[in-house]
């Protein structure tokens, strides 16, 4: 089952990469033919998407060929590390790609709905991408902090864990708030972030007190 899902994912990655390359290439031909700079945004945007998917696809293929998904833990650890880096590269390139394409749309000339359509889209793209990215990153930090706390059961570690949990909640709530345009959830997200920051402050205070003591 896992193997089938993995193969399907890999196939879709490669297929999407080819499609994005084709779109980017067509935009490049448009740039060459018309010399209209707006095509440059679409070319670079789709090429970045292609590069992101290509990176991910290559890593998936390499893992499939050389590191089968069954194996000893150290081997799997390496595989997951490589996967994480590939995912990060993929997400960054995808986010930047979307952003550039959105900028291309924003630069359209003499369109009736130009401002209407692009003004809310740009921050939305920026926010959703980065909030999703940050949610994933803070979730990793939560898991790491939880592992540390379970090991030493220190009050400082607990504060860090709580702070990261609040940071994660903040990013996740922000994402929900942006997608659903829910003001109250956005406020809750902000409060969660501030409480997280206060917990960091409390942790610093505790550390400094101990040093002074």
């Amino acid at each position: 089952m896992l193997r089938t899902f993995y193969l399907f994912n890999m196939f879709m990655d490669w297929l999407s990469a080819i499609i994005f390359f084709a779109v980017g290439y067509l935009a490049y031909r448009g740039l060459k033919l018309t010399k209209a700079k707006i095509f440059l945004f679409h070319t670079s945007g789709f090429m970045l998407q292609f590069l992101g998917l290509l990176t991910h696809g290559i890593v998936m293929l390499t893992v499939f060929l050389y590191y089968p998904l069954t194996g000893t833990f150290p081997k799997l650890k390496l595989v997951f590390l490589v996967f994480s880096i590939a995912k990060m590269v993929y997400y960054i390139l995808t986010a930047v790609g979307y952003l550039i394409i959105a900028l291309g749309y924003a630069l359209r000339k003499s369109e009736k709905y130009r401002i209407l359509s692009t003004a809310p889209i740009l921050p939305l793209i920026l926010n959703t991408n980065f909030e999703a990215f940050n949610s994933a990153l803070t979730l990793v930090l939560v898991l790491e902090a939880a592992a540390v706390y379970l090991e030493n059961r220190e009050r400082g570690s607990l504060k860090i864990l709580m702070a990261f949990i609040l940071m994660f909640i903040s990013h996740a709530l922000s994402l929900i708030a942006i997608i659903g345009t829910l003001e109250l959830i956005f406020i809750a997200a902000r409060i969660s972030r501030y409480v997280g920051a206060i917990l960091f402050l409390m942790f610093l205070r505790g550390v400094l007190r101990r040093v002074e003591g």
């Binding site: 067509l26 935009a27 031909r29 448009g30 033919l33 018309t34 209209a36 707006i38 095509f39 679409h42 291309g104 749309y105 359209r108 000339k109 003499s110 369109e111």
Partner: peptide, 17 residues
């Protein structure tokens, strides 16, 4: 032929050619 292809592509993205 190339121009018509590009024009079609551009129209889809709202790019004036």
């Amino acid at each position: 032929r190339e121009f018509k292809r590009i024009e079609e592509f551009a129209k889809a993205f709202g790019i004036p050619v």
